[in-house]
Design a protein around this nucleic acid. Structure first.
Length: 858
RNA sequence: GGAUGCUUAGCUCAGCGGGAGAGCAUCGCCCUUACAAGGCGGGGGUCAUAGGUUCGAACCCUAUAGCAUCCACCA
């Protein structure tokens, strides 16, 4: 028997351990079942999980738990991501607080620290998974730096290299001067920052004219090789071919014309700095300019900056501008808002810089993805529109810079011959007396891209899990990492396994705070899932975060909705407690016998079938909000408010086996349908039911049974419910207490045999007369029936009420007639709709006639 | 500059071709024996605006406005 109060802490205690120990989360327990597989998006080992993770993983858990009950052999692979740059930044930050830099420690020692960090946060994450109740298969847990993944990474790198899809090249990349590493384009966050737009006078050789050139980054002027103008720009035509004098260092710069230059922008004259700007780099290639780097790895000026050597880029900017101003070459400084790239991880302003890096050639891989999306094996997105996001990005994708000047990660399997410098790219380490390994590691997403197949045992294509569970069934993730992760998994998987890594992708949005702001450390508005679990219970939190949103859209955290989710579970808990009390100790479950049902039982059983059908459909479509709302209406209104109360009539009479069976059957079905959302509390309820299995996890999802459909009962009970509602309403508006006694009469019959017993109970009727006579008193009309409250009533009030009824019915009848006399409607609307409208019109006409008769008699 | 999403009850949001919904808030009345984290009843919306398609539009199309997000460019 359940306790009087639902105490989430008591309910949650010990259950997760029990499930894990029983092995219920393991994939492959029964291989006669069809496989269903998923991989967890591996969280970064950078810290604790936040509410966004809770939503993402809960959605996955709901799917897994649902699919198990639906008879699948479910495998959900857990794991974590080493998160190269993110984790290294964290570890460095921690060291910095101790006054140590990574260079003080050296690579080996630093990596020890990083592994320590990883160990700590791995444990934290696993504890959080347990708190969330995630049914992941721990026997298959993976880490992106483990041996298997590392081998897969090497294999992929070497293969791509041999295929010419990985190359080393000197190009302009995004440089993070704080972490001192290259970044890929998508790791750069562009923000509109207020900056200064410096306009300088450039002297022109052999002319008295001065050219005004504008720049936002004066410190790069030491790397300038030319000044460009547009060939059509009349202002400067005559200067093309002459030299301008660089006011930073006095070097002559050829004035050249190229249509790349925008006449309207700035002064129309642009300085060209090939080693520090991607567009200038392209121009330099075109015209064969030298590539002059003036900044070092930490964005300090090098020897080319002369007296500014060693200064930080901003110090240099300030000093240089002051000097230029001093010698009369400053024209003006404009304030300007322009977009500035920042490192996603360190926040540092990214410096575009010429650098030798490893790149993945994207065009052939992107093409595979794009072609696949045109085929039958395409990856289906839920919601669909996100497919376009992916496609548009893949069509315009740049080559992927995969090398990082970090230590925490997969070291690039490229080796340089100590004597000849020749490159050897190999999965097997060569004789290290003769070779040195490339110092760089790979972008962390390089390994995450292999996650769905590498965790299944690939590159061993005979691995059991790979054969049985790959491709995976569905991937759940946020729209913010479609570029980073989803796209890369798809093209790598297509390239290496010839299959898309998953059939479907369910995209969810972000969780924001109550005011709709992004949760962030700097705002301090983050909500800790563990804290929420402490207060409301994990089931309530799971229910809230997965049912109060719609796929692909952001969601706000809401304290009141959180509380109402908890209240809902409490409601179910109490309903279950009541059912158990009612069934009694010696109750033996059986399917309700159709022949012995009361109309009340029959009606709820009919409704349940429809609910099962509708909920199942929504679950299959990953529409968890809609599924839960269908269930909610059923649980609250049909089951708790209506059926539980009405069934008391039969139960108190004694001969109620069918009603008890109905109660049990409905309650169990509800528990099973709520279970994927709220596994702990439903397990507790389930185990307190008679004749249960060892765990709700071993149960079967409710199935639609059309034998229990009974439209007649549903209609009769609906009429009864309307009568009860009308009386309640009548009392409320007449200032009567709800339990005020009233005398009722019905004409010419009751909604179903025995209905007046229910009516009496719920309307506190002291008597109910059934008569064929016309009813006096305050009358309510139903299709084919009337009900009246017997009392001395104010005739005027009654007349007013009837007139109101009449007015309403006239509107209804007119609507129906208009619709049905519309030839367009009759010829084009579906027959079912026409039937419904015809029936409705007839009913309303009948009611209208009755109202008019009553008015005439008054 | 390009793209996408959002605009529905006081607040937060569902619904996305056949008569406007939920939670919370609000107003009455109830400590009724599963549940006061409750019960019963009520009030509250020209579904952003303007056109169009359709027998029928909150829902489809086109424009407009506001808000948000993503991508690209920015000397």
């Amino acid at each position: 028997m359940l306790d009087k109060n639902y105490d989430h802490k008591l309910v949650e205690e010990g259950k997760y351990e029990k499930w894990v120990n029983a092995g219920y989360f393991k994939g492959g327990l029964d291989k006669s079942k069809p496989p269903f597989s998923m991989v967890i998006p591996p969280p970064n080992v950078t810290g604790k999980l936040h509410l966004g993770h809770a939503m993402d993983t809960t959605l996955e858990d709901i799917i897994c738990r649902y699919k198990r009950l639906k008879g699948y052999d479910v495998l959900w692979v857990p794991g974590q991501d080493h998160a190269g740059i993110a984790t290294q930044a964290k570890v460095e930050e921690k060291l910095r607080k101790q006054g140590i830099s990574r260079y003080d420690l050296g690579r080996e020692k630093f990596l020890e620290k990083a592994w320590e960090w990883k160990g700590e946060y791995s444990d934290t994450i696993r504890k959080q998974w347990a708190s969330l109740g995630l049914s992941v298969d721990y026997t298959r847990e993976r880490f992106t730096l483990d041996e298997g993944l590392s081998n897969a990474v090497k294999h992929v790198f070497v293969t791509l290299y041999k295929e010419g899809l990985i190359y080393q090249g000197e190009r302009i990349i995004n440089w993070d001067p704080e972490l001192r590493t290259a970044l890929s384009n998508i790791e750069v966050i562009h923000q509109d920052d207020e900056g200064e737009f410096f306009h300088f006078y450039y002297d022109v050789e052999g002319s008295d004219e001065k050219l005004i050139v504008a720049t936002t980054r004066p410190e790069t002027m030491f790397g300038d090789t030319a000044v460009f103008v547009n060939p059509k720009d009349e202002r400067y035509k005559h200067l093309v071919g002459k030299n301008a004098i660089n006011p930073a260092n006095g070097d002559p710069l050829p004035i050249m014309a190229d249509s790349y230059v925008d006449i309207e922008f700035g002064t129309g004259a642009m300085k060209c700095t090939p080693a520090h700007d991607p567009n200038d780099f392209a121009l330099a290639k075109k015209y064969g300019f030298p590539l002059i780097k003036v900044l070092d790895e930490s964005a300090h000026m090098n020897e080319l900056a002369g007296k500014y050597k060693g200064m930080d880029r901003y110090e240099c900017r300030k000093a240089l501008v002051a000097d230029i101003e001093a010698n009369g070459h400053l024209y003006k400084i404009e304030k300007m808002v322009h977009s500035v790239g920042h490192s996603e991880r360190s926040g540092a302003v990214v410096e575009p810089m010429l650098s030798k890096q490893w790149f993945v050639k994207m065009t052939p891989l992107a093409e595979k993805l794009l072609n696949n999306q045109k085929s039958e094996d395409k990856v289906n997105f839920v919601p669909k529109r996100f497919e376009n996001v992916l496609i548009r990005w893949m069509k315009n994708v740049d080559d992927w810079c995969v090398s990082r000047q970090l230590w925490w990660g997969h070291r690039i399997p490229a080796y340089y011959n100590k004597e000849t410098g020749e490159i050897l790219v190999s999965e097997v380490e060569p004789d290290m007396n003769l070779y040195t390994q490339d110092e760089d590691v790979l972008d962390t997403w390089f390994s995450s891209a292999l996650w769905p197949f590498a965790t299944m045992g690939w590159p061993n294509s005979e691995a059991e899990d790979f054969k049985r569970y790959f491709p995976t069934s569905v991937l759940v993730t946020g729209y913010d990492i479609i570029f980073f992760w989803v796209s890369r998994m798809v093209f790598q998987s297509l390239h290496f396994t010839d299959k898309a890594p998953f059939k479907e992708v369910l995209i969810h949005g972000l969780i924001r705070d109550e005011q709709g702001r992004k949760m962030s450390k700097s705002l301090g508005n983050g909500v800790d899932p563990i804290d929420v679990i402490e207060r409301y219970g994990v089931d309530a939190m799971r229910y809230f975060i997965t049912t109060n949103s719609t796929p692909g859209l952001d969601e706000r955290y809401s304290e009141t909705k959180m509380a109402s989710s908890a209240a809902y579970l409490n409601k179910i808990w109490n309903a279950c407690r009541y059912v158990e009390m009612t069934l009694g100790e010696d109750y033996k479950p059986a399917l309700p016998n159709k022949k012995e049902l009361t109309p009340i039982d029959a009606a709820i059983l009919d409704k349940l079938q429809r609910v099962i059908k509708a909920v199942t459909k929504k679950m299959d479509e990953y529409q968890f909000g809609q599924a839960s709302s269908i269930l909610y209406d059923f649980v609250y209104d049909d089951f708790c408010s209506s059926y539980l109360e009405m069934s008391k009539v039969a139960l108190q009479k004694g001969d109620s086996k069918a009603t008890k069976d109905t109660l049990f059957y409905i309650m169990k079905s509800i528990i099973l349908m709520i279970y994927p959302y709220a596994p702990f509390v439903t397990e507790e309820m389930y185990l307190s039911l008679p004749e249960h299995l060892d765990s709700i996890m071993l149960e079967t999802y409710p199935t639609y049974d059309k034998n229990y459909l009974n439209a007649k009962a549903v209609k009769a009970v609906a009429t009864l419910e309307n009568m009860i509602k009308d009386i309640r309403n009548y009392k409320s508006t007449s200032g009567l207490a709800p339990n005020e006694k009233v005398k009722l009469s019905l004409s010419p019959k009751e909604p179903f045999k025995g209905a007046s017993e229910y009516l009496a109970r719920f309307s506190f009727a002291s008597s109910i007369t059934i008569t064929k006579e016309e009813l006096g008193g305050n009358t309510f009309l139903y299709s084919g029936m009337e009900m009246a409250v017997e009392e001395d009533i104010d005739k005027e009030a009654l007349k007013a009420k009837l007139l109101k009824d009449e007015e309403k019915l006239i509107a209804e009848v007119s609507r129906g007639e208009k619709m049905l006399s519309n030839p367009g409607f009759v010829s084009k609307a579906p027959k079912a709709k026409i039937d419904i409208e015809t029936e409705k019109l007839e009913k309303n006409k009948e009611l209208l006639a009755t109202v008019r008769a009553k008015l005439a008699n008054l």
